[in-house]
């Protein structure tokens, strides 16, 4: 099967660089699958995972914010933060999740903090999920 080049870059450096048959990402409008020869496309991404499938192998990368750019021969993900499943520090994510949950329970009045805690919670949950996906 034809493959398409995938690269995931963050401001702190490139995270993932490889070829894949199918790239599945979670855009704000829903899940999105990209294969070689796709029309040029730009879509913003939600907090979620990007999965690169080749045959039976699958690489998973946790992605926070950013967008996806597709060209016929290349997929580029520009994310604010991204980690490969095997590099995720699950303990840290669990702690972050706990912190965010505590904060959500405490502060009901401050609006901005609430939003930040919610986002932090979603990021933490996403990391944990991706780490589990990567193990399978």
């Amino acid at each position: 099967m034809k493959t398409i080049a995938v690269s995931i870059v963050t401001p702190d450096g490139p995270v993932y660089e490889s070829e894949a048959e199918l790239v599945v990402a979670k855009a704000t409008s829903g899940e999105l699958g990209v294969m070689a020869g796709h029309v040029p496309l730009v879509a913003p991404l939600a907090i979620g995972s990007v999965r690169m499938k080749t045959g039976n192998d699958q690489d998973v990368v946790a992605v926070t914010g950013g967008f996806l750019e597709v060209r016929p021969d290349k997929v580029t993900v520009l994310a604010q933060a991204a980690e490969r499943a095997e590099e995720i520090d699950v303990d840290r994510a669990l702690r972050a999740k706990q912190r965010a949950e505590e904060r959500l329970n405490q502060k009901r009045e401050a609006n901005i903090d609430q939003k930040r805690a919610e986002l932090a919670l979603r990021r933490a949950i996403n990391r944990i999920q991706v780490a589990q996906l990567g193990k399978k």
Partner: peptide
């Protein structure tokens, strides 16, 4: 480019 969902969003 195609824009998903639309250009404003992007």
């Amino acid at each position: 480019y195609e824009f998903e969902p639309n250009i404003e969003e992007i």
